Amino acid sequence: MSATAQKKAPMPTDIRARKGDTPLVSLTAYTTPMAQLMDAHCDFVLVGDSVGMVLHGLPSTLEVTMEMMILHGQAVSRGLSRAMMVIDMPFGSYEQSPEQAFDSAARLMRETSAGAVKLEGGQHMAPTIDFLVKRGIPVMAHIGLTPQSINTLGGYTVQGRGPQADNLMQDAKDVAEAGAFAVVLEKVPEGLADRITAQIGIPTIGIGASAGCDGQILVVDDMLGLFTAFKAKFVKRYAHLGEAGEAAIAAYAREVRARRFPGPEHVFADEAPKPKAGA
């Protein structure tokens, strides 16, 4: 491969093979420009159903539709050449039956060029994961806090404490056995996340879990300080672009009202400039 040759995007089998290796890096993306920014730095990029809250102002992920996921998946796909794209299956698109899940997953992959789908749920979704994988759909699982189930979980609460720990461990084992190539652990106690990571053969991707997981993921708008409706404990702000953006907009508004913008350098003369001699 030449120095200028483009690095090939990893496949689900490549992600699975990274178990216990250098930690996997992932972020969510919903637009082409954001995908372009993270493409060289992430192993995989998730088109998350969090788009409903982050970009569309919805109160939860429950109102996100297949059409929304496809639209944003297509946008992200245009911005990626090195990172693998995984796309969330929205609420109501896979829970009814394995057959429904296959139809939805096949549509998402066909219309967005995603390399894999992600779905929420542990033991009860294992048969569906098995059904999909056997039919050529790579699946990333998601256990612990599953945002599509907040109404039954009692909100955005930590999962896996006390008596819940054994059940969550079984969730992890079942999705791994069913054929998931990786599993997201969201808002899981650190010690339990470490035990799960040690006991299953697929990579664990932490979000509010443990640095000992096989990889990490954050919502990009959270870590850049663009989405500030609320801040989870597990989010680290690597920038404060929301504050910077608001300051820039305020400066623009002041200049417009004071007629300082546009300035001479931003407007056009009545006559086109004459070409320079010898040009």
Rank of each mutant, 00 (worst) to 15 (best):
A5S: 15
A5E: 13
P10V: 08
P10M: 12
P12D: 13
P12V: 09
I15L: 10
T22P: 02
L27T: 07
L27R: 04
T32Q: 13
P33K: 06
V45P: 03
V47C: 15
V51K: 02
V51A: 12
V54A: 15
H56C: 12
H72G: 07
Q74V: 12
A75G: 09
A75V: 10
V76N: 10
G79C: 10
S81I: 01
I87S: 02
I87D: 02
M89V: 13
E99H: 13
F102K: 00
A106D: 13
A106I: 00
R107E: 10
R107A: 09
L108A: 01
M109A: 09
G115N: 03
A116R: 03
K118G: 08
D130A: 14
D130L: 01
V133I: 03
I137R: 08
Q148C: 04
Q148F: 03
N151D: 06
L153D: 12
L153W: 09
Y156L: 14
V158P: 01
G162C: 07
G162T: 04
A165E: 07
A178I: 08
K187H: 14
V188H: 05
P189I: 06
G191W: 02
A198I: 05
G201T: 10
T204N: 06
L218F: 14
L226P: 06
A229W: 07
A229S: 07
A232G: 04
V235T: 14
A239H: 11
H240W: 11
A244F: 02
A247H: 15
Y252D: 03
A258K: 06
E265L: 08
H266D: 13
H266Q: 11
F268I: 14
D270Y: 05
E271K: 14
K274C: 00
G278P: 06
